[in-house]
Nucleic acid binder design. Structure first.
Lengths: 180, 180
DNA sequence: AGCCCCATGTAACCGGTTACATGATTGG
DNA sequence: CCAATCATGTAACCGGTTACATGGGGCT
């Protein structure tokens, strides 16, 4: 329902080409909204056709030209309207949860092994997020506006990884595995 | 990639018709995997064609017949194989997160208002989960096997709602709103 | 010469959502 | 009689994924 809107947020922070957006998504908004470059190009083309963004072709030294997108007045209005709309209760879809629930119908030892690996992966990502937090927000107390929002969303990423670690730890312990 | 597998888990717990499955999904697995009856019918038909389930038509008093699905030997083997496969690092896709990050490009007061509502919705769901836990698992210490798994997944639901409440509380407080 | 990176895309597919359809039975 | 429930579907759409394509530049 809303790669368009995620792109408008990203372009409001900083105009950019399709590939730049794809790379930014991997690093920032991508914690909570993933998008491949193919899909970004397709949606950007639609947004351009609908007049949500303005495009400027920028020549570069020793590289292909890039098409830099900026939200238009229409795009900014669309974004404002979307931001003010009520949030729907979000659903969480987890293959892992299905596996945990179904473990007794297969090889439980394998499930526990894979879960321990998943737990380690989440721990790695948590460490990464915490490092980003130290680097980008050394003094959170003084933040306001968009910078404060960016910090709070990163905090959400940290909290989410902690959720995963806590839950998987619960599961492993309850089945007699001692994590870490 | 895996409504098939979620259905195999559900049918392993208890065989059932399409509509029964749809209702069960709303109450149990649905915390972590939502599915409409339309899609369940479609996937069940494919599973039947592929020989993953066996179907028995059961006549009922004063109601239409129902087609009860049970995992076949093939289906059980498919489920075992899927359960043993490594888990991929799960991505979380949140429209709310995008709105929080973009709040400064629209009406922040409206975003905060909607977020307070979202927080209340998650609190309601948390209360609901906790009630289910008290009803269905009054004595978790004695659980083993599939029942233990069901409790642990419900615990995951509780933890997830707590994550939402904690995060939204962070955000509201940082922007000078006092929740509750 | 071969490979990776930049940059922009197209095409086929696939899973899930939404809207609609049918027909029987029970309850107000 | 009407509405709701049980039960099973079909059809159109839509967003996202995967695979493939193109062409120039720099690096080894």
């Amino acid at each position: 329902m809303a790669l368009e809107h995620a792109l408008l947020v990203a372009l409001s922070e900083k105009p950019g080409s399709g590939l730049e957006l794809a790379r930014r998504f991997e690093r920032t908004l991508g914690f909570f909204w993933q998008a491949s470059h193919q899909q970004i190009y397709r949606v950007l083309a639609r947004m351009e056709a609908d007049g949500w963004v303005e495009v400027e072709t920028v020549a570069q030294e020793g590289r292909p030209d890039k098409r830099v997108h900026t939200p238009s007045a229409t795009g900014r209005a669309v974004l404002r309207e979307w931001l003010a709309a009520p949030m729907t209760l979000e659903e969480f879809r987890s293959e892992t949860a299905v596996k945990l629930r179904g473990a007794s119908y297969g090889d439980r030892a394998a499930v526990l092994r894979n879960l321990a690996q998943a737990r380690a992966d989440h721990a790695t990502r948590l460490t990464h997020y915490e490092q980003l937090e130290r680097e980008q927000f050394p003094d959170p107390a003084g933040l306001t506006g968009a910078a404060l929002d960016r910090w709070l969303v990163l905090r959400g990423g940290v909290r989410l990884e902690q959720f995963w670690i806590d839950w998987t730890t619960d599961y492993l312990k309850a089945h007699g595995e001692a994590p870490r």
